[in-house]
Design a protein around this nucleic acid. Structure first.
Lengths: 337, 337
DNA sequence: ATGAAAGCGCTAACAG
DNA sequence: CTGTTAGCGCTTTCAT
């Protein structure tokens, strides 16, 4: 009844059934050497009968390649990393590669061990925004090659890097608010330890330097909905009219919190996000944000890896400049009165 | 300088350096047989020097186990599947297992091949809401065992199954709208082929049967933001006062579309979602929905798999009854005037 | 307690 | 064109 036998047959069973040696079976399965057509078809028939398919493990061991790529992300629940994974996954699939995923749970100390362990089961690895310290990363990377980094500097190694330019990306957001008349702004900061938070701060510092007439305060917040939601009360009574949230998640939390407090967006307060996650255009009001091509970051990561695996020179590192996406959550500052 | 050599040393190198046989090295690495403490420490020292770690591939081949679980999802971009993955991933990690992920891109015909191929690299597999036909699934499953299914019936096999009860879950949503006075409702249907869509329709049919005074129409829609967003125009002028969206994504798209059209929620129209994705409580207004414990579904899936892997009897199949989560997107029907 | 040898399933020289 | 042999890196009898 069941057309598929429970246990997969080994190559030796096929050889036996076809009355040939295993090498011959191997040859017809891999169509490299030339095999007598008559024998070949006999082998193929036997293979079908036994529902044979080569054991990928054994193949990997002898070939020294697994056609699998490892991806390490800090948090599987974060839409940004999901999109990166998806980008890598779909691109790699086109070349016949699968992905092995691990989630470090944002725990920096877990990353090295996880990365090394995964890497040994795969041909290459992509590290998404690793949290570990610079020096650790620096001497981990050589052991991981071929590897590529997303949203993290390569610490002086030759590892290809794909990043979003948070520093450059945050300025148009601030400029946009400025252009709408906002002079009292606040930045809801994420994890102060994180590189991308630091980049945003640098970008904002540049903005401040060129706009001395504008107050721009940094407020501790976080990186998730909850953080933004909790910040709403403080923001509501603060007098700030333009809020730069760390990312879209925080912005959405804030939007929701402000709505509950009866604060109107953008009439009373303008809010911006960062990343342009798929939901951003469907919030109420739709979120003004800086769009980061995360899926493309993932795809490009795979391209670099694939080049490396074929001993080719990978394409240049690129730093994607986020694009300002003006939507409904920002508007002219309310005329005081 | 680099503490980690580029290429991992094989066990033979360690044996040589320690002046023992590979078997001895293997023994100390696996601490099973008893080894002379003096020799053992010598081996360990050599292992550290060479930065040795057993090759997981070779180990898997001989041991016949990989400590890896496969997960097949229809779409990596869907928050529901992401949460399931996360549940499986975190639970499996506690037992030292990694996950191999594949995304079928919602293509039913891809699923069998992908599943079989992944399964051979892993010790077990979890199938999330496979789209393939019942009979295909039925004769695929034996070849995949140990396996567990999430949100899909096991087609008569003994495969453990974890599901959310969409049929039972949709009724409280309709009842809730009914209680608020709504008598003209519409269901924004997802993929008509999908099992969970059919389940919702059954639940709603039961509702209709017991509430003959209520009009409940099914409208073709889809499963993503865009679908809900596009449906807004049709809904706005329809006279329906209570809308049951296929899921939270569609509901959010609808919310956003209605807001753009100046339709107030819940004053003019009430909207419900389904799933209770993390964002659902942060929409404006927060979404009334049926909460499905997706992360737990994933965790429980791992528990079943783990039992199977240890030749134990897995826990019973469970069908999670979604919980009604009343929030701001539903309200009393507007008094007709 | 330790080493030699067999073998997991497969591929790739090397002969014939 | 095909079979024999070696070996990928490791674990596990089986002797010693």
């Amino acid at each position: 009844m069941a057309r598929t036998p429970r246990k997969p047959a080994p190559i030796s069973a096929v050889a036996e059934l076809a009355g040939v040696s295993v090498s011959t079976v191997s040859r017809v399965m891999n169509r490299n050497a030339t095999v007598d057509p008559e024998i070949a078809s006999r082998v193929r028939k036997a293979a079908v009968t036994l529902n044979y398919a080569p054991n990928p493990l054994a193949r990997s061991l002898v070939l020294g390649k697994t056609t699998t790529v490892a991806i390490l992300v800090p948090d599987l629940a974060n839409p940004t990393f999901q999109s990166m994974m998806r980008g890598v996954s779909r691109a790699a699939a086109k070349d016949g590669y699968r992905i092995l995923v691990a989630d470090s749970g944002e725990i920096a100390s877990e990353e090295s061990i996880l990365a090394i362990e995964m890497r040994r089961r795969c041909d290459a690895i992509v590290l998404c925004a690793p949290r570990m310290a610079e020096d650790l990363l620096a001497d981990l990377l050589p052991a991981l090659a071929p590897a590529v980094l997303i949203n993290r500097d390569n610490a002086g190694t030759r590892t290809p890097v794909l990043t979003a330019d948070y520093e450059a990306g945050v300025r148009p957001l601030a400029e946009h608010l400025y252009g709408l008349g906002h002079r009292r702004m606040a930045f809801l900061q994420g994890n102060p330890e994180s590189a991308s938070n630091a980049a945003r701060l640098r970008g904002l510092a540049q903005f401040s330097a060129t706009h001395p007439d504008t107050e721009l305060t940094t407020i501790e917040c976080g990186t998730a909905f909850e953080s933004g939601h909790e910040a709403a009360a403080e923001i509501a009574g603060s007098g700030y009219t333009g809020i730069l949230a760390f990312n879209d998640l925080v912005a959405m939390g804030l939007l929701s919190g402000l709505a509950e407090l009866g604060v109107r967006v953008p009439e009373d307060i303008s809010v911006t996000g960062f990343d342009d996650i798929p939901l951003a255009r469907y919030t109420t009001p739709p979120l003004t944000t800086a769009s980061v091509p995360v899926v493309e970051l993932g795809e490009q990561a795979w391209l670099r890896l694939h080049a490396l695996l074929r001993e080719e020179t990978p394409a240049f590192d690129v730093n994607y400049r986020p694009r300002l996406e003006v939507r409904g959550s920002t508007g002219p500052v309310a005329s005081r009165r």
